[in-house]
Structures are given as structure tokens and as C-alpha cells.
Design a protein around this nucleic acid. Structure first.
Length: 193
DNA sequence: GGGCCGATTGTT
DNA sequence: ACAATCGGCCCG
């Protein structure tokens, strides 16, 4: 197996949030804890959030919580939700333009769902704003062979009440770690414009 | 300062 | 269907 000590540069993240979301599927999310323990697994489920999107934390302007989304791409946006969970996002778009991809599931033991991923990988508010482009750091993302469009499924995003017409959730077809399996879906290659 | 709500999850 | 659990956000 090839080394995990590689990572996407900020050029990868300084693009359309929807493209970054799609391209993150299959990439290896990697985690060092205390400088030694390494966790890793392929990203299998993501969601996109953008500036003109009513479901996005940044849609009504910059606040203390979401300010990282307005910063440079390739950094972690970690927020606290429902009084008990953290969720991990990757910041996208050029510096000054908000955008992020929510990491909903990783193909490692028991890491389905964004809340459980952060709990099990010990990701919390102290990682908010952290750069993800240093291989071997606390948290980074290692490139992988691109997936075929026919292996990707799109659906509305989970847990939001607005913008249900946007098919901005992407996951790897038939992957066991994907959450919310009962949802209706379409293949990425047949998505409507 | 107060009240409401949430990009979740596990139980009833 | 609903409880757990609490910081963020908006209003006043």
C-alpha cells in the first residue's frame, strides 16, 4: 500500500465546494493523536454547504462560529451541535468566500455519521481552524485514485429543513459505512443540472 | 438577559 | 416519535 504521508495542497480546496465534495470521496482521512497513534480510512460520505445556501451556517454572514468558513481553504471547520456532538468540515473556495464540505462518514470501524466520527477520532473545537495540508500533522487528507461517477450516489442533505431540492449529499455506492440508507437517491452520473 | 433551535444519535 | 443536552444566534 502507498504511503499515507501525502496530502492535497490548498489548490485542491480552492475550488467549487461541489467539486471538492465529489473529489473527496475515496480520499484517506488521516489522524495522529498524541504524535503517535494513527487512524485512517477512506471518506465515503460528504455534504456541500455554500454561501448562497440557506442551510449553510455562513448564509447570513460571518459570525464567531462560522468565521473559519470565510478563511483560507484547506482548513478544518469544526462546530458543536445538539449539546453533545462535533462535526468536521473542510473549508473550500478562495479566501474570503465561505464554503465547506461536511465529512459524514469514513470507512473505518464504527465511524458512520458525523457526530460519531468526531467522537471516536477525538476531533473537537480545538481543531477548528487547523490546517489540513500538513502530512503527518494532527489531521490531514491523503489523495487516492479518483472514483468513477457511476460509483457515486447523490441525495438531498440529511438533518436540514431547507433547500431539500439540492442534491448536495454524495456517497460511495453500496458502502456499508454510509448513514441514512433509507433515503431515495440518484446516481451522480445521472444528476440533473 | 432570555428563549429558541440545531449539518445528531440512541432509545421508546 | 422523542429525549439528551448546551452553545450560538437573534431579539429586545
Amino acid at each position: 500500500m502507498t504511503s499515507l504521508l501525502r496530502s492535497y495542497s490548498d489548490d485542491f480546496y480552492r475550488r467549487s465546494t461541489l467539486l471538492v465534495a465529489r473529489d473527496l470521496l475515496g480520499a484517506q482521512l488521516c489522524r495522529n493523536i498524541g504524535g503517535k497513534t494513527v487512524l485512517s480510512g477512506p471518506i465515503v460520505e460528504v455534504e456541500a454547504y455554500t454561501a448562497d445556501d440557506p442551510a449553510c451556517h455562513a448564509s447570513r454572514g460571518k459570525t464567531k462560529r462560522c468565521e473559519v468558513m470565510f478563511g483560507p481553504p484547506g482548513h478544518a471547520y469544526v462546530y458543536f451541535i445538539y449539546g453533545m456532538y462535533h462535526c468536521l468540515n473542510v473549508v473550500t473556495e478562495p479566501d474570503g468566500v465561505p464554503g465547506a464540505v461536511l465529512i459524514r462518514a469514513v470507512g473505518a470501524d464504527g465511524t458512520d455519521g458525523p457526530g460519531k466520527l468526531c467522537r471516536q477520532w477525538q476531533i473537537d473545537a480545538k481543531h477548528n481552524g487547523l490546517s489540513l495540508i500538513q502530512p503527518g500533522g494532527d489531521l490531514w487528507i491523503c489523495p487516492s485514485k479518483p472514483l468513477k461517477d457511476s460509483d457515486i450516489v447523490v441525495t438531498p442533505r440529511i438533518g436540514i429543513s431547507s433547500a431539500q431540492d439540492r442534491l448536495w449529499r454524495f456517497f460511495i455506492k453500496d458502502h456499508p459505512a454510509v448513514s441514512g440508507k433509507k433515503q431515495a437517491h440518484k446516481t451522480y452520473s445521472s444528476r440533473r443540472k
